[in-house]
Structure formats: C-alpha cells, structure tokens
Simulated scan of single mutants.
Amino acid sequence: MYYLAVFALYAFVFAFGSIIGSFLNVVVYRVPNGLSVAEGRSFCPRCHAKIRPYDLIPVLSWFILKGKCRDCGQPIAARYPLVEAAGGALAVLCCAVYGFHLQALTAFAVAAVLLPLSLIDADTMTIPDGLLVALAVPAVASYFVMPGPGLAARAIGFFAVSLPMLLLTLLIPDCFGGGDIKLMAVCGLLLGWQRILLAGFLGLLFGLAAAVRLLVRRRGDRHSHFPFGPCLSGGVFLSLLWGDVMIRWYLAFCGIL
C-alpha cells in the first residue's frame, strides 16, 4: 500500500511537471518571435488554428493525433512531447533528490527556466534577458528555502565564473556570448562560489564534447560557434542537485578530506 501511494504521488508530480513542460513549449516558440506568453490560446504554428482544450493533454495528445495538427494535417515536431515529458521527469527528479518540500519546488523552478533557455539558445544562439530575470527569482528564493551557501559565498559566486568569462571575451572577441556570462552570474547567486566553479567546469566538459561531436561529424571547424547555454545549464543543474556530493568525492579522492 505504501509503494502504491508513493507511485501515485510521483505520478501526480510527473503530470504536474509535464503540464509545466507544455507551457515551456509555448515559451520556446513565442519568446524568440516576440509574442506574449501570457496572452492568447495555443495555436498551430503552421496554420495558426487554435488548439482545442482536449488536444492539450501533455505527451498523450501528440500520440492521439499521430503527430499531426487536427486542422491542417501538418506534422507536429516530436520535440513538443519530449519537452513535456522532460518537464515531468525533471519534476520527479527534483522530488527524488529533495523530497516533497519547497526545496524540490525551487529546484524544479530553476530547471523550468534552464530548459527553455537551453532550447532557445540552441535554436537562435541567444539567451533572452527575460529568462535570466525569471531565473533570478528561484535563485534568490533558494537562500531562504534551501540549505546552501551564505550571502558572502553567493556574492562571490556571482563573479567567480562570470568575471573570468567576461575578461576572456574582452581578450578574445566572441569567446563567450553575453547571455552565457549573465547566465553564470545569476547561477552564481544560486549556487555559491564552490558549486558555480563546479558548474563551470562541467559546462566546459559538455562544451568540449559538443565541439568534438561537431568536428567528427564535419559540421564545423576550430572557428565554428555553437550554443554554449545548454552546456552551462546542464552543469548548473547537476551542480544544484549533486554539487556538494561531487565536491566531497573529489576532495576525498585527492586526500584532502
């Protein structure tokens, strides 16, 4: 009975996260196109027909409609249900790590900003300032609801990665985008200086893997640009969930602890 109750609770969490994921799809489409995310019903991006309420069931509606718009019959990108499922999975993951507390909700709020931010950066090579402002809300809230660094550590974290990135960009033009620098500044407030350094290191590893993949597939050269926001976002989220564990493991491995 206990496990059934836990399963039902996590199923509810997944459903909640997938609903948020459905909204994130709206953000990913509308923000780069200069459209309001708060006004107007969802519509097909091809024929602009309003989507019926019964076609807005996260994940399931895409399969029920066989991946096509009910009105124009044009294909609906598979990314839509994937983002919805990702929203559910992230919500479940946050609850699995933090339990059913405000900490989990705060962590999910961070993930719910990083996900569309990463997708928009992947699509447009830009990180909207509005999403960075939105990210600052759970970053500030985390000080009150999540165990973590104090104000001094967070203030240092604001500059710990963003300032070196800015200096490198001044020395090597286009080394990092302005959105990447601002992203790490906001996340420094969230994580503090220790975990933001870890997040930056992980982001560099992800970026290196992405660069190697481009070279192997012969889609770029040493001077090619690729979106770095998704790499940094992945590092930030991993550091948020397991940063302290990874840092302790590293220090123990080095014999410092």
Score class of each variant (00 low, 15 high):
Gly243Phe: 05
Val26Leu: 11
Ile181Val: 14
Ser224Tyr: 10
Leu117Val: 04
Val137Asn: 07
Leu166Tyr: 11
Arg218Tyr: 04
Gln194Glu: 15
Pro32Lys: 11
His225Pro: 01
Pro45Asn: 04
Thr106Glu: 09
Ile64Thr: 12
Gly148Val: 13
Ile172Lys: 15
Tyr80Phe: 11
His101Val: 10
Leu240Arg: 07
Gly40Lys: 12
Leu4Cys: 02
Ala77Gln: 10
Ala109Thr: 10
Tyr10Gly: 01
Phe63Pro: 07
Trp62His: 08
Gly88Glu: 06
Cys94Tyr: 02
Thr106Leu: 09
Ala85Lys: 01
Gly148Tyr: 13
Arg213Ser: 15
Gly34Ala: 05
Thr124Asp: 01
Ala139Ile: 00
Leu208Phe: 14
Leu151Arg: 00
Val113His: 04
Leu238Asp: 03
Ser61Met: 09
Ser142Asn: 09
Leu215Asn: 06
Leu238Lys: 02
Arg41Pro: 02
Tyr98Met: 06
Ala211Met: 14
Ala134Asp: 03
Cys187Phe: 03
Gln74Met: 11
Ala49Cys: 09
Ala5Gln: 11
Ile172Met: 12
Lys66Phe: 12
Leu105Ala: 15
Val31Tyr: 00
Ile156Ser: 00
Phe159His: 00
Arg52Leu: 15
Arg217Ile: 08
Thr169Ala: 10
Gly150Trp: 00
Tyr29Asp: 12
Gln194Tyr: 08
Leu232Ile: 01
Arg248Pro: 02
Leu117Gln: 01
Met184Ala: 06
Pro138Cys: 07
Arg41Cys: 03
Gly188Tyr: 01
Leu251Gly: 00
Leu170Thr: 04
Asp221Pro: 02
Val31Thr: 11
Gln194Thr: 10
Gly130Pro: 00
Leu204His: 08
Ala38Glu: 05
Tyr98Lys: 11
His101Met: 05
Pro164Ala: 04
Ala5Ser: 11
Ser118Thr: 02
Cys47Arg: 06
Gly150Gln: 07
Ala15Trp: 11
Phe63Met: 08
Pro149Ile: 00
Leu4Ile: 13
Arg41Met: 03
Ala199Ile: 07
Ala49Phe: 06
Lys66Pro: 00
Gly178Arg: 10
Met246Trp: 14
Tyr10Gln: 09
Lys66His: 14
His101Leu: 11
Trp62Thr: 06
Asn33Ile: 00
Arg154Ile: 06
Pro147Glu: 15
Gly88Pro: 09
Ala199Arg: 07
Ile51Ser: 11
Ile64Cys: 10
Arg248Phe: 08
Val26Arg: 04
Gly67Tyr: 07
Val161Leu: 14
Val31Glu: 00
Val59Met: 05
Asn33Leu: 13
Leu168Val: 12
Ala210Gln: 12
Ile76Glu: 06
Ala85His: 01
Leu241Phe: 08
Asn25Gly: 10
Phe100Asp: 02
Val110Tyr: 05
Leu131Met: 12
Gly207Lys: 03
Asp71Cys: 05
Ala38Cys: 12
Gly150Asp: 12
Phe206Cys: 10
Gly178Gln: 11
Val13His: 01
Asp174Thr: 13
Arg218Thr: 00
Ser36Tyr: 06
Leu82Trp: 09
Arg195Lys: 15
Tyr143Pro: 01
Val37Pro: 04
Leu9Gln: 13
Gly200Val: 05
Asp129Ala: 13
Leu170Phe: 15
Leu4Asn: 04
Ala211Thr: 11
Ile19Pro: 00
Val37Gly: 02
Leu170Asp: 09
Val97Asn: 03
